[in-house]
Design a protein around this nucleic acid. Sequence first.
DNA 1: AAGCGCATGTAAAAGGTTACATGATTAC
DNA 2: GTAATCATGTAACCTTTTACATGCGCTT
Lengths: 196, 196
Amino acid sequence: MAGGTVSFRYFVLGLLAQRSMSGYDIKRFLKSLSWLIGSPSFGSLYPALHALLKDELVTVKVAPRKGKPPRKIYSITETGRQTLKEWMNQPLTPRAPLKAFAMRLILADNFSYAGLIAHLQQRRDQVAAHHAALEQTTKGGHGKAPLGHHLALDYGSALAIAELAWLDSTLNRLSQSSQQPLPIEVVQSDSTVPTV
Amino acid sequence: MAGGTVSFRYFVLGLLAQRSMSGYDIKRFLKSLSWLIGSPSFGSLYPALHALLKDELVTVKVAPRKGKPPRKIYSITETGRQTLKEWMNQPLTPRAPLKAFAMRLILADNFSYAGLIAHLQQRRDQVAAHHAALEQTTKGGHGKAPLGHHLALDYGSALAIAELAWLDSTLNRLSQSSQQPLPIEVVQSDSTVPTV
DNA sequence: AAGCGCATGTAAAAGGTTACATGATTAC
DNA sequence: GTAATCATGTAACCTTTTACATGCGCTT
């Protein structure tokens, strides 16, 4: 429950903090980046929405459309924003899957500027640690390991290096708020507080 | 059940095909590459072993060690090898997580040479498709998307490109069996056939 | 003597997928 | 008319984690 739980429920809450949506809208959005975080089924999406509603973190507004089945538009509440903030500020456990990091990355707008930097930095540290562990394992099993182990270690290493490179370049880009080579907008710090 | 099921159970079976081990041995091994495939708890590992035993895909040999609690060494059976082969030959579904691919990569020795190439090629196609989808999404939401979406899309793209590069270089290396720049052993074709 | 690493296991709870159920509109 | 897309939801099933339970040997 506590700690860096993946908690799909809170991720959905975070999406609703960006804009009010129906369950179907959320599904469609998740499908577009399913590679990063997977695309959960309705069987887990709708119950998640119902749970958020029960805890009063979101509200619903039924929007009937002549003839068609009505859409249920979910919106985040103030309590919801507060809860989301608390969840976002919990550090991820060292062995949290890539998915957990990606989820928070998508919700980056809910971070303060410093929070986002800290989050990326934390991930950098963890990936570096994992990478070091892989290198260690590679050196440990000298020659006698089966082909598959070599391949997996090499694969993991390549991905870790690529992720580190991305994290470094992104941290760099964010630190220098002077120019943005990529189509990145002005960094927002909070929904209410102006900026640093 | 069918299709490219991740099925931790079969993965464990595959590890036992490489060498006989106890549950604790398996845990230790998995911990070393937890970044790729996670490190499941004993609460799922032991039941998996019991299930394999019940299906007669593995056998146990209790190895008592004077005073110490006895270790249970699991070994794969012929039926087990057969079942494993069938499982390995099922193609992974397009939306199988990275974890599923990595699991089979670790078990690469159970593939035939052609099977391994096909598996890598298949992954290459899928990653390429996902990458194309991400690019499409990036072009779709022109400018109006929140910072987090940009970051996530960019992150996913960077990882996809790195994975494609690794897959290409590995496919290349495997195709040219003349020289091996990396510490890779001679490719085995079958479990029973000696080796070249 | 306290704590840690080895070594195995079970039970409750949480979370997820699959399959089912419903029903309207739009495209072929 | 038949299939696909939109749109919501429930129930059975499977898997996984978490927490508990046990007990030896070594080190501090």
